[in-house]
């Protein structure tokens, strides 16, 4: 069967690619567009390591087909920093040691950014439930939650 021709926007750049019907957005990002910051931990939408934004909505890219994203807006971890300046979440994750192995970190950052865009002043409870779709096996979540709260405070100050 012929491949699908897809034109879309990734991190503000116009891109086009060919993909098989069964290829997921995650497959396309990693294997075709070489954006390997999004990770595959489960391929079933349970671990959140592949979290990306699709038209401003947080999704697991392993649950989206590549051929579905034509004409839409995809944002990944690779687009989070601006030039040389890290996003406040990235900076706070570093300062709080909110990562150990770092495999889940891109997913946590993308998901946390999505949270702060809709809830600038989240409670610990809100952060924990929003991030319940992202698995981390190293940190016990403590320093991740602290980093998100601290980044939120920074961002509220502008």
């Amino acid at each position: 069967m012929a491949k699908h021709h897809v034109e879309t926007t990734v991190n503000g750049d116009e891109v086009e690619f060919l993909c098989e019907t069964e290829e997921t957005l995650l497959d396309v990002l990693r294997d075709t567009l070489h954006l390997t910051g999004s990770k595959e931990g489960c391929a079933s939408g349970d671990c959140g390591a592949c979290s990306v934004m699709l038209d401003g909505r947080l999704v697991c890219s392993c649950l989206v087909l590549g051929c579905e994203v034509g004409g839409r807006r995809v944002e990944t971890i690779e687009g989070m920093a601006t030039g040389e300046k890290l996003h406040p979440l990235q900076q706070r994750f570093l300062e709080h040691a909110a990562l150990q192995c770092g495999i889940c970190t891109p997913g946590f950052l993308v998901a946390s950014k999505a949270l702060l865009e809709r809830t600038p002043d989240p409670s610990e409870h809100e952060i924990r439930y929003w991030l319940a779709g992202n698995l981390c096996r190293c940190t016990g979540y403590d320093k991740i939650v602290s980093a998100v709260m601290d980044a939120a405070a920074t961002m509220r100050k502008g």
Binding site: L35, T36, G37, S38, T76, I77, E78, M80, A81, L86, Q90, F93, L94, E95, A97, L99, G102, T105, P106, L109
Partner: peptide, 11 residues
């Protein structure tokens, strides 16, 4: 700040 940190928060 860990020296491998920036690489890990930027993908």
């Amino acid at each position: 700040i860990r020296p491998d940190g920036v690489d890990k928060v930027t993908g």
